[in-house]
């Protein structure tokens, strides 16, 4: 009876999913496929839309000429630099981000010291996350200004207190200070978010486990490393995956930190893609090839991380299935 009903309504499942599918096909699937194809063509030049697929063998008999754009991207110095920058800046931001987020998580969820005002701390620390990244980038750009900027003023003031003089430093003209500032803005924007995610995970842990640990005489540090961290492992992987994908797509902040003197310190892969496609000689094909390369990297990395995350539950399932089998055998 119930089954019949479900069957008769099943067409609505299709109907209600149609808008999603249509919008997805037009705005995501088609552009992905189109981007893939453009990567194998000669499409370049401002406002051009017609293209020819590259021949498999080139005019001078080069083999695999069809992969020319990919080869050019992978061997180009600026793409290499952009990819390296993207990874370095992401690591420089993620390690302190996770570190401080874990530290605050440990402090704010500690059952023994019961810190007050955590609600307010959380709200203040999360705030930068909703602020427009572009705004933050320019704000920090002027705060780190030279010769007069809030940071230089502040540091000069501190030196003065100790009776010393300090020369203002031109932060945005040096490679590593630019990288550090970009990484710091990312950190500034995301540590609160990571912390709240982790705290939510800790609150989800059954309090009995902590009570048991307390009775067994585990101290704070032991409890945190032996109980809390293993229990929030899946949330940490989730944070890692989202942060990694966000990091590989870094654009807004470094985009606003371009200074010729700092040796392209903040050039990221997304900026490379945009520069190839919409400036100079409008190399849509090369930009598309770079997008495809980034797409493959992101899919591979997130698949790997998802696999790591899934591992445990699957193992549990397998165990359960084995037990069921055994029970069934016994029953026979």
């Amino acid at each position: 009876m119930r089954n019949k009903k479900l069957v008769s309504y099943s067409k609505y499942g299709y109907i209600f999913a149609i808008p999603f599918v249509i919008a997805f096909c037009i705005f995501t699937l088609y552009p992905i496929i189109y981007t893939f194809i453009i990567g194998f063509t000669d499409l370049k030049g401002a406002g051009k839309t017609d293209w020819n697929l590259l021949p498999f063998t080139g005019p001078k008999g080069e083999k695999f000429y069809i992969f020319k754009n990919f080869k050019e991207v992978l061997t180009s110095k600026s793409f290499g630099k952009a990819f390296k920058n993207t990874c370095i800046i992401w690591i420089m931001n993620f390690i302190p981000q996770l570190g401080f987020a874990l530290l605050f998580t440990a402090w704010f969820t500690d059952r023994r010291s019961k810190v007050k005002g955590t609600g307010l701390f959380k709200i203040l620390m999360y705030m930068p996350n909703i602020i427009t990244a572009a705004t933050l980038a320019i704000l920090f750009n002027v705060l780190f200004g030279y010769p007069k900027g809030a940071i230089n003023d502040l540091l000069n003031g501190i030196y003065k207190l100790f009776g010393q003089t300090r020369k203002s430093y031109e932060f945005i003209a040096h490679e590593w200070s630019v990288k550090s500032i970009i990484a710091f803005i990312q950190f500034f924007q995301w540590y609160g978010n990571t912390m709240i995610n982790l705290i939510a995970g800790v609150i989800g842990i059954s309090p009995e486990i902590f009570e048991a640990a307390e009775i067994d005489g585990a101290n704070r540090v032991q409890t945190f490393f032996k109980i809390t961290i293993p229990c929030i492992r899946s949330i940490m992987v989730y944070v890692l995956v989202t942060s990694l994908i966000g990091g590989l797509n870094m654009f807004d902040i470094p985009q606003l930190f371009i200074d010729i003197r700092c040796n392209n310190a903040g050039l990221t892969t997304n900026m490379y893609i945009r520069n190839q496609a919409f400036f100079g000689s409008y190399m849509y094909n090369r930009a598309a090839a770079a997008s495809v390369i980034m797409f493959i990297i992101i899919v591979a990395l997130s698949a790997l991380l998802f696999y790591l995350m899934r591992d445990r539950d699957e193992a549990k399932l397998k165990k359960l299935k084995k037990m069921e089998l055994r029970a069934a055998k016994k029953g026979l």
């Binding site: 479900l6 069957v7 309504y9 099943s10 067409k11 609505y12 499942g13 299709y14 209600f16 999913a17 997805f24 705005f27 995501t28 088609y30 552009p31 992905i32 496929i33 189109y34 981007t35 893939f36 194809i37 453009i38 995956v241 994908i245 590989l248 797509n249 654009f251 997304n270 893609i273 945009r274 496609a277 849509y284 930009a287 598309a288 997008s291 495809v292 980034m294 797409f295 992101i298 899919v299 997130s302």
Partner: peptide, 29 residues
């Protein structure tokens, strides 16, 4: 709420796509 044939495949695709960033489709778009 509904049982339909492609449901499982569809929701698997949705989960798989969650992580694909829009920027990868920029040029085609």
């Amino acid at each position: 709420a509904y049982e339909w044939k492609l449901k499982r495949a569809f929701s698997a695709i949705v989960i798989g796509l969650m992580m694909v960033p829009a920027t990868c489709t920029t040029i085609g778009f």
